[in-house]
Amino acid sequence: MVNYIIKRVIHMFFILFVISIISFVLIKLPPGDYLATYISHMQVTGAQIDQECIEILRTQYGLDQPTYIQYGKWMWQVLQGNFGWSFYWKQPVNEILLQRLPFTILLSLITLIFIYVVAIPIAIYSAVKQYSIGDYGFTLMGFIGLATPNFLLALVLMYIFYKYFGISIGGLFSREYAYAPWSFKKIIDLINHSWVPIIVVGTAGTASIIRVLRAMLLDELRKPYVQTARAKGVRERTLLFKYPVRVAINPILSTIGWQLPFIISGFIIVSVVMDLPTIGSVLLTALLAEDMYLAGSIILLLSSLTVIGTLLSDILLCIVDPRIRYYK
């Protein structure tokens, strides 16, 4: 197992390296270099152009040197925890990330848990009571969940809440708690605000897992060993949870990591619509303003976190399920 983990970690570093190159290419992608954009932005907003600051940036990132040296210098800064300067927010990128990233990670993890907690019981119910009204209902909901774009679901929910309950459900905090220090009430307020975005982002993932698990479980339930156990008089509930569910659930659990990119992607769009203090809306404004060190850092961090999350879930599964150890 140690071998497997070492192999995976080396593999992960390779992927992280490729991701860093992609992020750097994205930073370089807009026409004109960063400093020119910076200067023109400063001129538009009428701010003083600090010649000293520009010189510092130029030497720090080697902007007058060849591309691979620029990449090296940028990577060196990033590895030291310095992600650059955002001229749009007039802040170091680190500070913006520090404000936004924790909520992004927190919401993504809760959504991941939400998806499994909701999907598994529904899938088991649908498979056991195949072709019942409940099964049809969940299947229909699942299809619609898969077909509805996240942002549309968010808009519709916001509209319904506004229209029929007269409350606006955007943001993660009520106004009075937004800048208040952490307290028990603030946490309650956070929970009250966060369940809608979690449902919105989690729906598609839930729907796909219900679909897969239901099909797997149906296959499993038709197998002769189930009939044998039943003939021997094993109680239906014990029978179900002890054998077929455990077999059918395995592929679902082993692909936990695959959900992460979708959840992260989902929150990007939903955060724009619902005005969440997560990283998505920052990414959008950064891209539109061509504030590329901010945008590139966000993409680098989101992708790296996803890769690390996938690795962690794989290692966890490897500890839980001996067969994975064996096959790899």
Binding site: I15, P30, P261, S265, L283, S303
Partner: peptide, 24 residues
């Protein structure tokens, strides 16, 4: 296969956003 793995690991929407925002 490695290329595919990398592309599948990266969340698609941010990547698409960055690429399409960079279109002149």
């Amino acid at each position: 296969q490695r290329v595919i793995e990398v592309l599948i690991c990266i969340p698609a929407i941010p990547l698409w956003m960055a690429l399409s925002a960079a279109l002149p």
